[in-house]
Design a protein around this nucleic acid. Structure first.
Length: 514
RNA sequence: GGGCCCGUAGCUCAGCUCGGUAGAGCGGCGGGCUUUUAACCCGUAGGUCCCGGGUUCAAAUCCCGGCGGGCCCGCCA
């Protein structure tokens, strides 16, 4: 690059973007200012003075007046820079500012003649600069690879992504508030476990040097939260990161967050009530209403979280949405139905066939929050068999906008039966391996069974996928869009210091780094 | 694990079918402009066309291999 870097222009004006200012006294957020001064009429100026700080997101220059857009993380506002107010010296700095620079601003709220609430700038400080050009303002960052590599830019520029991430925090907080008011406590269960369990999935295996052994990354907090119930912590939950060594697609990612809740002396019906109340509470406190309008790439969908939610049994749902009778059918008949539907299936469990048929014909049609109940017992090794018919489990799943969001049940508290189910799982694994290849199964966990042997009360539990829930609420179709940062392969590129040895030399000398 | 698609300037993209001097808009830089909302006007710089190999007089373009990324199917939430 032969042209002088604008960094040197700042230095010439006596501004070092890292050495001149070390802090800025912010007195008000832009969200508050927007609220407080909404009364201003066109052309009206307030005499109040505020200090704000943030990133310049847009610039419109008109000679001796310039308009910029400032984002302070709570909202955006237009800044009005005027030569007659700022004077010659400061105007030179205004001319150097680029989109992406970070400034602190002192000024007065006003509304322009065109009706834009603004800050009339009386003074400002350069707090940091950008060394890289920002993406085009209209399309922003659109290339999927760039979005994930430069995720901070995607979060900064893509409003849908940013509000999903901010609202995820608010939803989690509302869940905690709701549960706290009901006397629940949150427990941190181990992420490094000697036996994995609580779900059916392939685990990550890592080396623990302290004990010179392999350990598993937690696939679910379930068995430890149930131990906590045994410990007389009768109302527990955790917002837990879970790791599952499976493939990535639009609905799955190897690390994800779910909230798991366990309540003693309760059954699945109590848990469905708790969940719909909690979710409705959270949605209302974050979005202002039980009904949320979601923009799915231009298509509008109004989700209604008003409790109670619809409850349909798995087999009824297959009949209702798919027009297929499955009740009382045997394994061979169900296999034939699956084949007709084009469902590839290699699993000896009848329940797995039903689940697959449901996923094919019913799941995509469930838009509003719905409980699908009475899952087959043979695919629910941690759930309590249905009191009226042990072919089923007292288990429900939550579906919203065609996505599976959660899973809950009356927890199996019988250590004898739990032992039997785990033993069956091992058997299933060995049997299936010959016939179908590897299937996911739940490993024997005798330590967990021993906990049950000390006595666990009747208990209901649930797990709700936080990322999936946020996908649904924000209308984002890929789970990666609501995960703050995902893994990407390292890439070769040059840093600014590598490309500008003169600037590197400047700082090394200035800060006496050698 | 299987299939399909994408990779060109800082960003968004065109050019690729039918091989023949590397393009536009935005952004950057320089100039003009005191009320704009993707401001506008004039000028200007900016490229390893993802990488490697092959075919050809000639490759961004055709072929092969690789890398990076996306989507779908199978499996997991």
């Amino acid at each position: 690059m032969s042209i002088k870097h604008r960094f040197w222009s700042f230095i010439e004006l006596g501004i070092d973007p890292y050495l001149t200012e070390y802090r800025y006294n912010v007195t008000e957020s832009l969200a508050k200012i927007r609220e407080k001064y909404s009364y201003l009429k066109n052309g009206e100026e307030s005499q109040d003075k505020h200090s704000i700080a943030g990133r310049i997101m847009g610039i419109r220059r008109h000679g001796k007046i310039a308009f910029m857009v400032l984002d302070d993380g709570t909202a955006e506002i237009q800044l009005v820079f005027r030569y007659d107010i700022l004077g010659d010296e400061k105007w030179k700095i205004v001319e150097l500012l680029n989109i992406g620079d970070i400034i602190g601003v002192f000024g007065r709220p006003m509304r322009t003649l065109r009706g834009e609430l603004s800050i009339l700038v009386e003074d400002f400080k350069v707090l940091s600069i950008t060394w890289r050009d920002y993406p085009e303002k209209w399309h922003g960052i659109a290339d999927a690879e760039k979005r994930y590599r430069l995720r901070y830019l995607d979060i900064m520029l893509n409003k849908k992504v940013r509000s999903a991430i901010v609202n995820m925090y608010r939803i989690e907080k509302a869940f905690r508030d709701f549960l706290d008011a009901k006397g629940f406590i949150e427990i941190h269960t181990p992420k490094l476990q000697p036996v994995y369990g609580g779900a059916l999935a392939r685990p990550f295996i890592t080396k623990m040097y302290a004990l010179n052994r392999d350990v598993y990354l937690s696939i679910a907090p379930e068995t430890y939260l149930k131990r906590s119930v045994v410990a007389n912590l009768f109302k527990v939950y955790e917002i837990a990161v879970c790791f599952r060594n499976e493939d990535i697609d639009a609905q799955h990612y190897p690390e994800f967050v779910q909230i798991e809740i366990y309540q003693a002396f309760a059954d699945w019906n109590d848990m469905m009530k708790l969940v719909e109340d909690m979710v409705a509470y959270a949605v209302k406190s974050v979005y202002g209403d039980y009904k949320v309008e979601v923009d799915k790439n231009g298509d509008k969908l109004v989700l209604d979280f008003t409790p109670p939610w619809r409850r349909i049994s798995l087999e009824d749902a297959i009949e209702m949405f798919g027009g297929i009778k499955v009740k009382g059918k045997n394994y061979e008949e169900l296999l034939e139905i699956a084949k007709q539907l084009g469902v590839e299936i290699s699993d000896p469990r009848k329940g797995k066939l039903l689940e697959k048929i449901f996923e094919k014909v019913a799941q995509p049609k469930i838009a509003q929050p719905t409980y699908i109940t009475l899952f087959p017992r043979d695919i629910s090794p941690l759930a309590r068999p249905y009191r009226e018919n042990p072919e089923y489990a007292e288990r429900f799943e939550i579906y919203i906008d065609g996505l599976e969001i959660g899973n809950g049940y009356s927890e199996l508290n019988n250590p004898i039966v739990q032992y039997y189910f785990f033993a069956k799982e091992e058997e299933l694994r060995l049997k299936s391996r010959e016939k179908f290849g590897e299937v996911e199964y739940h490993p024997m966990d005798k330590d967990f069974i021993r906990a049950l042997e000390y006595g666990m009360p009747p208990t209901a539990g649930v797990g709700i996928g936080i990322y999936r829930f946020m996908m649904v609420l924000s209308g984002l179709s890929s789970i990666k869009d609501v995960i703050p940062y995902i893994i990407v392969e390292q890439e070769n590129f040059k840093t600014v210091a590598e490309e500008n040895p003169d600037i590197l030399k400047y700082y090394v000398e200035k800060l006496k780094l050698e």
